[in-house]
């Protein structure tokens, strides 16, 4: 399985995680991993979502872009492998 990383900038409030994870569950997209952190001195958070890289990915991104609390969406290719490896190491 090839993993892709979707990077999100979101408004930071208690409901925002539900909006993101809810989207994945109701559209039946698999979510392999999540990493979230608040951006210093802002009302925003950055999220990294690890997802399977398949033909559904462009639909996932379009649906994410529609969420009101999602400010930016991008597909990260740079140091992607490194990131996944680090997350892997840290969590397992």
């Amino acid at each position: 399985m090839k993993t892709a990383i979707i990077e999100l900038t979101v408004r930071n409030h208690p409901g925002v995680m539900s909006h993101i994870t809810g989207l994945f569950s109701r559209r039946a997209y698999n979510l392999e991993g999540i990493f979230v952190n608040r951006l210093k001195n802002t009302e925003k958070s950055r999220m990294l979502l690890a997802v399977e890289e398949n033909e559904k990915i462009s639909q996932i991104i379009k649906q994410l872009e529609k969420l009101h609390d999602v400010l930016e969406v991008s597909l990260r290719h740079d140091e992607k492998e490194e990131l996944i490896r680090k997350m892997d190491e840290f969590l397992t």
Partner: peptide, 13 residues
Amino acid sequence: YGLSLPITKHNFF
């Protein structure tokens, strides 16, 4: 909030 989340365009608390 949780109940209305998947069936609204957006929701606020």
